[in-house]
Design a protein around this nucleic acid. Structure first.
Lengths: 195, 195
DNA sequence: GTCTATAGATGGATAGAC
DNA sequence: GTCTATCCATCTATAGAC
């Protein structure tokens, strides 16, 4: 399995995704150049095109892979029988899963405008799949009488906005850890629907 | 007060701000060129520089003016004596004031990364002033026993995230109007702090 | 697989005519 | 006040050497 000197496909491929993730999160897709990404990886800009057809695909793949992994992880984590139990599982999963992936989540919400129309539709569908899971839990709880609120759609969006909010401000190392964030957000989510 | 033909300072100045607002909201600051802004206004790119020293100032002024107006409007609207009343006034004001300014609010949160360090500090201070108003209401309600939650800082941020969320998804013309949004968000905010 | 070199387009900003 | 013209930097993406 001899390799030519200077060949590092197994390293460079993931390194490009990591570098793009880091730089897109920090400066935004449109403000980051392929040269910057290459410099972060330690190669020249031309070498990037061995791994991606263009910059747009770099963004799209990042968002798609993130959302597919999210949906798959949720499928494994889902649980609970009554709506309050299921909400508890969802909130815990949501905070836990996103905690170490804040950059990816951040990009997946901030860079929607920079997707082509076709790519946008794909990403929106994946995101909608995930959000529907919460919507279903809230809708069920309304029917069973476990929850009390006026509108399923508005409450779902409001709760998702709240649950995603910590991603934009939380930075580790302070007085709060992951368990604090989980506990408080469950507490707030439960109160929101008067469970 | 004769004006040369082709002189329209009173028109062009605000028109540039309007065009920049519209385009920044749609495509993002970094993805919009000065030529695009000029085309939207109906002038050539060079003419923009009679009204702004550079593109960065266009963004900064937009955000600063928005936040200054927000703080001024809140100073006039504030009211209520007990924490629950004051929270009600805040939520009503917040939804009402932002309702027709969704583009400005959107930009003021999305484009923070594209400010220079110095401009960022100014904008963050203005935003912090506004957010402190809600934080104070929640802190007071905790002391009086009107509200029940664990942490002032986390709850403030969570509530602001929820209250800002509708800006990203609400588009007029559907089944919901401003009064619906106000009523439901007050209901959710009240429930969140167990008022 | 990576490099150098570069094509070709577009960006922000300025100079000078009108 | 606006336009035309342009400077110069930078960008994405490709071609061809190694």
């Amino acid at each position: 399995m001899a390799r030519k000197a200077g060949s590092h496909a197994e390293i460079t491929g993931p390194a490009i995704q990591d570098a793009a993730l880091k730089l897109f999160a920090r400066s935004g897709y449109a403000a980051v150049s392929m040269r910057e990404i290459a410099a972060e990886v330690g190669v020249r800009a031309g070498a990037l095109y061995l791994y991606t057809p263009d910059k747009q695909t770099l963004l799209f793949d990042m968002m798609r892979d993130h959302l597919l992994a999210l949906d798959a992880a949720w499928d494994k984590a889902r649980g609970g029988t009554t709506p309050p139990e299921r909400l508890r599982v969802f909130v815990d999963f949501h905070v836990e899963y996103h905690f170490d992936l804040r950059d990816k989540v951040f990009i997946s919400y901030m860079e929607l405008r920079n997707l082509t129309d076709e790519n946008f539709r794909v990403i929106q569908k994946l995101r909608r799949d995930y959000e529907s899971e919460l919507e279903q839990i809230l809708a069920d709880g309304l029917v069973t009488g476990d929850f009390h609120f006026e509108d399923v759609s508005v409450t779902t969006r409001a709760m998702l906005a709240m649950l995603l909010g910590y991603i934009t401000w939380f930075r580790g190392g302070g007085r709060l850890g992951k368990e604090d964030i989980k506990r408080m957000h469950w507490d707030l989510a439960r109160a929101m629907v008067r469970a």
